[in-house]
Amino acid sequence: MIEFKQVSKYFADKAAVDEIDLHIAAGEFTVLIGTSGSGKSTTLKMINRLVEHDKGTIQFAGEEIRGFNPQALRRRMGYAIQSIGLFPHWTVEKNIATVPGLLNWPLAQQQQRIAELLTLLNLEADLLHRYPHQLSGGQQQRVGVARALAADPEVLLMDEPFGALDPVTRGVLQQEMLRIHRLSGRTIVLVTHDIDEALTLADKIVLMDSGRIVQQGRPIELLTHPANDFVRDFFGRSELGVRLLALGSAGAAARRGEWLETSPIAAEMSLREALSQFIARQTDKLPVVDGKGTPLGVLHFGDLLRQRESA
């Protein structure tokens, strides 16, 4: 869907992005991660031409992006950022309808789309006529995501969208992003410096440092087969184990056909959280139920150890 070939970007003769090759497949959740100044945000902004690349080619849907009108290109891509950037003088409704409005959708179609987005992002309908400053941080970010999704964009670009939120709200919104990604199968490119966020969300992680891509691949690959010491250090040698656990879910690891009459854990719970449950509840067996509350099986403490081979 998006193809970077030997792309460079210079700011004041210094390479912010240095000859990167990157393929973002359709329907994939790609997370660009790195320290500040690693070029991850610049890479993201080159996709919708907020930053123009100096060398190489970037293709979107098979065409070089310079061939597009920048406004038309951006309207085909959703865009959400950390400071949210909601228009303070517009109601929530008008904010969400920004891109459909720019594309001159009929009013009825806009209304219908807004209703769909409210349901998708668990927003109350009575928020529609409020102004952004009347919403909580989490609600604002939901509206920001709804606005980015409004015109059903082919790609969703997100620049540290949850950076300013408290950990609880951030966690909830990360789960919602996963749900939205599963539901819509949309291509998402997200920039973050939060390793756990990257591991939770990504189908593919792209680790960047001083303008270059150090390693890219599935999260498990970066954790288990780091290309060099930088990657190993970045993902934290000491916390490597728990981060590996974060990639597996209790539902997938539970032993079917067994059951225990004690309070169960949810199938979506990551094995990292399950580990915490084992320790907190002083037990080595936990029953697992699915979303509807139907028993799935039992997770044994020892199962956590075998995750590495199965993953």
């Binding site: 919708n48 907020l50 920048p70 406004q71 038309a72 290109l73 951006r74 309207r75 959703g78 865009y79 959400a80 950022i81 950390q82 400071s83 949210i84 950037g85 909601l86 228009f87 303070p88 920004t98 891109v99 720019l102 920001g144 606005r147 980015a148 670009l157």
Partner: peptide
């Protein structure tokens, strides 16, 4: 706010 300007451009406003 610069974020407002950036998203406005990012969403394809001229």
């Amino acid at each position: 706010p610069s974020g407002v300007r950036e998203t406005a451009a990012g969403m394809g406003m001229s």
